[in-house]
Design a protein around this nucleic acid. Structure first.
Lengths: 215, 215
DNA sequence: ACCTGAACACCGTTCAAGT
DNA sequence: ACCTGAACACCGTTCAAGT
């Protein structure tokens, strides 16, 4: 029984926080404006006073989440600063799994990525890297974090669901050892490297190490 | 005027190829089973004879695309082989942009990723890398390709749309130079490193170079 | 400006039925 | 088995109207 919300008690902040709650609760795929409106105790069209359409709301939620990014630690060596920024973004994505999907599916308005960019670029540029190298490195690091963490979240989601876990095992066992000899041989190692801090840091350190020898 | 397709002329292969055509034509977001059925000249429920539901069809399309991955070049040094596999996956994603979205949004049954895994793992393992290092490196490389290429596709899509390009420019210009000094300063370099072969290879070589010094 | 209510043009999927 | 047709429970969004 949804009680009607009185007039003028709605706000874009309230809508965003309730939308975020629903996206994290039931998943981004099953999120709908009608369900959100119902949860807020208003008609579906009330939301259109604050957002032009559904995509506009998606962008607002994504911007809100990106605003939670921690600041770059000052006075540390650049490899540690790079690590801090990348880990911070990963942590944020893990805490808010819908952020990964929002970053992957929605085109970017640019403003919210500027926060990450400023952190990484600032560190790299003041560490002495050239303009183009700094830009290239930033894009490389950012896309690595995006890919690695999205993948990690997806694997974790699949493994949480008992049905998905069963499907994962059966397909893994059905792989023919002649067609996929190495995968079958290294299956236990592969299962252990689908995510986690260690796996993330391994790739991150590979990039940083490559960056060291290049400069 | 949709002519009715006669009985028994449907097949899962035909459905998959038509679905792929629609996904690439009008985009994955606006793809629907009803539209697909209309295009095939059958009722919406005819598809359910061959696929359990929409997600099942998504998986089938993704598997079909992953089957197009080129084989690993034999008899080359491992860095070149790694480069070949990663570039092959990127090329496939660029040729079929919906693949990026399919890999990012749908959980994996495991079988189709085995093709990439076998290529990368095989190369790394026979190059002398230990079991765990080979597994970790594979996941790192795979997620890098995924993130870098997804990002690249997204930026290209945004820039193709004139409305999106305008939005991108205005938000870039609206960034305050005091809040985002480095981003504003390096804006031209950033714009040039949002994608392309050079950018992809830069990150890939960073990883390979890091891998060299680690071993 | 802020919000409602009805309506439009869609969805994926179930179910019973036909061949 | 292969496919239809009606129906159910949803969608996002437009439009005219009310306060």
């Amino acid at each position: 029984m949804a009680t009607r919300t009185p007039r003028n008690s709605l706000s874009s902040e309230l809508i965003i926080s309730k939308a975020l709650e629903l996206m994290e609760g039931r998943g981004l795929d099953s999120f709908s404006l009608r369900a959100l409106a119902g949860e807020l105790g208003v008609g579906p069209m009330a939301i259109y006073t604050y957002f032009r359409n559904k995509d506009d709301l998606y962008d607002a939620v994504r911007d809100h989440l990106m605003g939670l990014l921690p600041a770059v630690p000052a006075g540390a060596a650049w490899p540690d600063q790079v690590r801090a920024v990348c880990r911070g973004l990963r942590r944020l994505m893990l805490q808010h799994p819908c952020l990964a999907q929002l970053l992957a599916s929605r085109p970017l308005s640019g403003h919210e990525t500027a926060r990450v960019a400023e952190g990484l670029l600032g560190v790299l540029h003041s560490a002495g890297f050239g303009r183009e190298i700094a830009a290239r490195t930033h894009t490389t690091l950012f896309t690595y974090v995006l890919g690695a963490t999205s993948w990690e979240i997806q694997m974790a989601t699949e493994q949480r669901d008992p049905e998905g876990l069963r499907r994962l095992r059966t397909t893994m066992e059905s792989l023919s050892a002649t067609e996929f000899p190495t995968v079958v041989d290294l299956a236990p190692e592969l299962a252990r490297t689908t995510g986690g801090d260690e796996q993330f840091d391994y790739g991150l350190d590979l990039l940083i190490s490559g960056l060291r020898t290049a400069s």
